[in-house]
């Protein structure tokens, strides 16, 4: 565990907190993509299959990971519940039109071609990594469709993007300090994921400096 990894995970938790705070305080899930939340649910439930095989108390790190995994799984399930049930009438269904089955199918094909080992577990793990890289796309499309973005929603996406950017710092750290090699799959997907946010980051920082709401062209 290094400072980049810890900061990244904290930002990930903060982003989830911001998302739930936005929905709860405004009693509305306007501007939030159900499709992105659904993709994250798939990502977490395929990535964290090892919850069934790993003893949480094996080490401090596995305990920490287990807590985080359960938190990510349960919070994304809860978010989906809120959007689909309690605040259903505020969900912006008309603009949330990204065709996610292409993302899911594309990730599945990539996972069958690129994986660490040819085992079901490794292929499912690779699938989750590919899917996570593109899971934000429906959310970014929704923002572009609607233009004006609520502050708390833009903070949410900013935290989520920063989380993966800090993971890159963590990987560079581990490469030199722990001589950790052969992580090409996670590295490549994490970099693609971070690059997807580049455009958003630009407009976010611009809006923060001007003290205005984020407006996407």
């Amino acid at each position: 565990m290094n400072i980049f990894r810890l900061a990244a995970d904290v930002l990930h938790v903060v982003s989830i907190f911001l998302l739930l705070l936005k929905i709860k305080t405004s009693h509305s899930c306007a501007g939030i993509s159900l499709k992105t939340q659904f993709l994250y649910m798939i990502v977490f439930s395929t990535r964290y299959l090892d919850l069934f095989f790993t003893k949480p108390w094996h080490s401090a790190l596995t305990f920490y990971n287990t807590i985080m995994k359960i938190l990510f799984l349960s919070s994304s399930a809860y978010t989906i519940y809120l959007i689909r049930n309690r605040y259903k009438h505020t969900y912006d269904k008309v603009h949330d039109t990204f065709r996610i089955h292409y993302l899911i199918a594309g990730s599945a094909v990539l996972a069958l071609v690129f994986h660490i080992r040819l085992t079901p577990f490794e292929i499912i793990w690779a699938f989750s990594v590919f899917l996570e890289a593109v899971a934000i796309m429906p959310q970014l499309l929704l923002l572009q469709e609607t233009g004006q973005v609520e502050n708390i929603t833009s903070h949410y996406i900013f935290c989520l993007g920063s989380y993966r950017a800090l993971y890159i710092c963590n990987w560079i750290w581990r490469y030199f300090m722990e001589h950790r090699r052969n992580q090409w799959l996670a590295w490549a997907c994490g970099t693609v994921q971070t690059l997807l946010y580049a455009d958003f980051f630009y407009y976010y920082i611009l809006s923060q400096r001007q003290g205005k709401k984020l407006r996407l062209p």
Binding site: H12, I116, W125, N170, R180, R181
Partner: peptide
Amino acid sequence: ASGSGGKDEL
């Protein structure tokens, strides 16, 4: 840890 594909990360 090398080659294990990042399973100790989230």
